Amino acid sequence: MAVLLQTDLPFPIFRRGKVRDVYDLGDRLLIVATDRISAFDCVMPEGIPDKGRILTAVASFWFSATEDLVPNHFRGSASWPADLLPYREGLEGRAVIVEKTRPLPVECVVRGYLAGSGWKEYQAGGAVCGVALPPGLRLADRLPEPIFTPATKAESGHDENIPFERMAEIVGADLAARLRDLSLALYRRGAELAARRGILLADTKFEFGLSQEGEVLLIDEALTPDSSRYWLADGWQPGRNPPSLDKQFLRDYLERLEDWDKQPPAPHLPVEIVDGIRARYLDLATRFGVTV
């Protein structure tokens, strides 16, 4: 199956992320989700067939399902400017037009279960991003309440978990509180809708930006398998990582490699890993009734 690793459109490039190519359309942006996949801050040489379309469809589902909680930057994929029409066929299903915003320099992470970097922090000191947790918790345990654990956004290298007080210093106390409350509300909505489909939303991250009028908008992506940890509810058992429908399958494979130090260049992925990632992403999309 063909994959799209990079686009080359005749518009000013706004930025190329690990997955998305973003073009400047003046007061709006064109975001194209490629089939690239990254782990440990490295982009893999192989793409995942249909991944960009899956991410775009899942994000669109969640933007619609949460717009009553917070407006988002999504401005559609149907009414394309005339100068984009010659490229529409190749971009169909993986490109959206969004409002240009001023992105806020923090990632808003919410955790409902103990996993990933949060588990490592808890093992080291009994807290995650300064949030003290009860003693004796196990890997994959459900937390008493979802917790907000922000992080800095790094252009290169690893994001850094920070306490809420540091976030307040970066964006201001009032805005920090607003983003925390919005993130927790979004997580609870995501967890509720996922649970109906036999999935646990273990954790996720949101990004926000300010419109020209100063309105807070949800931007980038929302509750996709790239930005979230989704577990199969019937396979959840505290004390071990449950079966997932996200990037954990890739991370687990890379962790088993003895000859890669998590620095570029990333290793090539065998066919069974590529196929396994695609199957998990498609499974998640199907459970939400998303057509790719």
Rank of each mutant, 00 (worst) to 15 (best):
145 E>P: 00
160 E>C: 03
127 A>P: 00
134 P>F: 04
85 L>Y: 00
160 E>W: 00
176 A>L: 11
81 P>S: 08
131 V>M: 01
122 Y>R: 02
121 E>D: 14
155 E>P: 14
133 L>V: 12
173 A>F: 08
156 S>N: 12
158 H>F: 04
101 T>M: 13
109 V>P: 10
161 N>A: 11
177 A>L: 14
133 L>F: 09
123 Q>G: 00
107 E>A: 10
123 Q>V: 12
75 R>Y: 03
135 P>W: 05
110 V>Q: 07
75 R>P: 00
146 P>T: 06
144 P>N: 02
130 G>K: 05
75 R>E: 14
116 G>D: 04
150 P>W: 14
127 A>F: 01
170 I>C: 02
158 H>T: 03
176 A>T: 13
125 G>W: 06
162 I>L: 13
84 L>Q: 09
98 V>L: 07
148 F>A: 05
80 W>I: 12
150 P>H: 13
73 H>Y: 06
171 V>S: 11
77 S>A: 14
173 A>D: 15
93 G>K: 06
89 E>W: 00
176 A>Y: 12
129 C>F: 08
153 K>S: 07
155 E>V: 04
173 A>V: 15
124 A>I: 02
164 F>N: 05
152 T>H: 03
113 Y>H: 14
159 D>N: 07
77 S>G: 01
169 E>N: 02
94 R>F: 10
108 C>R: 04
144 P>M: 00
149 T>I: 07
157 G>P: 09
102 R>I: 12
157 G>F: 13
160 E>L: 15
99 E>N: 02
177 A>Y: 03
117 S>R: 13
171 V>G: 13
95 A>M: 15
89 E>L: 00
176 A>D: 12
141 D>Y: 05
139 L>K: 05
107 E>M: 06
148 F>R: 01
112 G>Y: 04
71 P>E: 06
75 R>N: 07
161 N>W: 04
149 T>L: 04
126 G>Y: 04
103 P>Y: 11
165 E>T: 14
124 A>F: 03
79 S>Y: 05
72 N>F: 12
87 Y>Q: 01
85 L>P: 00
114 L>P: 09
121 E>Q: 15
159 D>L: 02
101 T>P: 02
123 Q>R: 15
127 A>K: 13
126 G>T: 02
121 E>A: 15
